[in-house]
């Protein structure tokens, strides 16, 4: 479904990503791990069009999406969440989720300005849809609260709910469990597994909390300094000498 072909990306003189390749089949859950600064978020940015790769090609469902504008890539069906949460803080939780449905709505300017029945219906439908997603993430008690006032963990859930409303085929999660304690993280893990099944999603996941990644990913890519260190199943990765070296230094043993 998503294929990244030998992508290399430079920021000025700094090589952030080197010769990265990945092939993700539909409905797979793939993990992307590595020390800080390894280039993981950069890859997300490259996929979603925030940066155009210096070299290489990215294709989604056999269509070349290299360097396309972000909103177009989202409209193709790839959506992401952010490492440092990017919610629309003064908008309510419900509005945050509703706004992500924007491009799937059809009401034109005229029907909105004149408040035609088609407009009103669509608004109601979108609101119902957003409420439904909010319920899945247990956010239905804070629908009308400004999103910025929620505790960190719930803000993360809003982000994920918001992303799902774009009706994506593929979801890129950037450290969704960051800042959560192990119990919350495992709850999230179950949630991710569930929505992957329910919504037939393909997921690429960046995460630092090992139990989460190991528990949900079928395959893991390990990055360090922009280079791919290892690729394999969670078990293989846990015992891979190079991975251990990258995280813990030479000569360490788990």
């Amino acid at each position: 479904m998503l294929r990244i072909d030998h992508v290399t990306h430079y920021f000025g003189g700094l090589r952030a990503v080197e010769d990265f390749c990945i092939d993700i089949a539909p409905q797979q859950i793939i993990g992307l791990i590595g020390p800080n600064g390894a280039g993981k978020t950069t890859i997300f940015n490259l996929i979603t069009g925030v940066y155009k790769p210096t070299q290489g090609k990215i294709s989604f469902e056999d269509e070349d999406i290299t360097g396309k504008l972000p909103y177009k890539i989202t409209q193709h069906g790839i959506v992401r969440t952010f490492q440092n949460i990017r919610l629309f803080s003064t908008m309510t939780v419900l509005e945050n989720i509703m706004v992500a449905h924007h491009y799937r709505m059809k009401s034109g300017l005229l029907s909105s300005l004149m408040r035609l029945p088609s407009f009103t219906h669509e608004e109601e439908d979108t609101e119902a849809l957003a409420t439904k997603f909010a319920k899945i993430f247990k956010l239905d008690d804070v629908l009308n609260v400004p999103a910025g006032s929620l505790p960190y963990g719930r803000q993360r859930r809003v982000e994920i709910a918001r992303a799902l409303v774009t009706e994506p085929k593929m979801l890129l999660l950037d450290e969704p469990a960051a800042g959560m304690n192990p119990k919350e993280a495992l709850e999230l893990l179950d949630l991710i597994k569930q929505i992957a099944i329910d919504f037939k999603l393909t997921i690429l996941l960046i995460e630092h909390q090992m139990p989460v990644v190991m528990g949900v990913a079928e395959r893991i890519h390990v990055l360090d300094f922009g280079k791919t260190l290892a690729v394999g199943t969670p078990k293989e990765i846990q015992n891979h000498p190079k991975v251990i070296e990258a995280y813990l230094g030479e000569g360490a043993k788990i």
Binding site: V50, Y71, T74, Q75, R86, L87, V99, H102, A163, T166
Partner: peptide, 16 residues
Amino acid sequence: IAIRENEVAAHLMGIN
């Protein structure tokens, strides 16, 4: 409004 609040996020949620 989304653009005002967080332009990058709005862009990545499919808004032109």
